[in-house]
């Protein structure tokens, strides 16, 4: 599955996007954040406080309970500061 990162998440992970195989047991955005957090030091740092991280599935905002099945692109980013 394609995952994209923005702002300080991108900087902490040192990558803008990646294609990863996600285990079937990981079903929601919240579970995906926990799973990603266990993938190494930089992920632990990036996902240290999942409460402040926002997510989108296929460019639409979603809550941590959202199911990831069928998604083409999942995005993680900090609270937005446009305008």
């Amino acid at each position: 599955m394609k995952i994209v990162y923005f702002a300080w998440l991108r900087e902490r992970l040192n990558k803008t996007e990646e294609d990863i195989e996600i285990p079937a047991s990981v079903q929601t955005i919240g579970e995906l954040m926990q799973w990603l957090k266990s993938r190494g030091e930089e992920y632990e740092y990036a996902f240290d406080n999942p409460k402040v991280i926002r997510a989108a599935i296929d460019k639409t905002h979603v809550q941590p309970g959202a199911k990831i099945a069928g998604a083409n692109e999942i995005a993680f980013f900090p609270p937005m500061t446009g305008g």
């Binding site: 937005m80 500061t81 446009g82 305008g83």
Partner: peptide
């Protein structure tokens, strides 16, 4: 503007 500030994905 209110919605843009809180829901449009931009970061400064």
């Amino acid at each position: 503007m209110d919605y843009l500030k809180s829901s449009a994905p931009f970061w400064k």
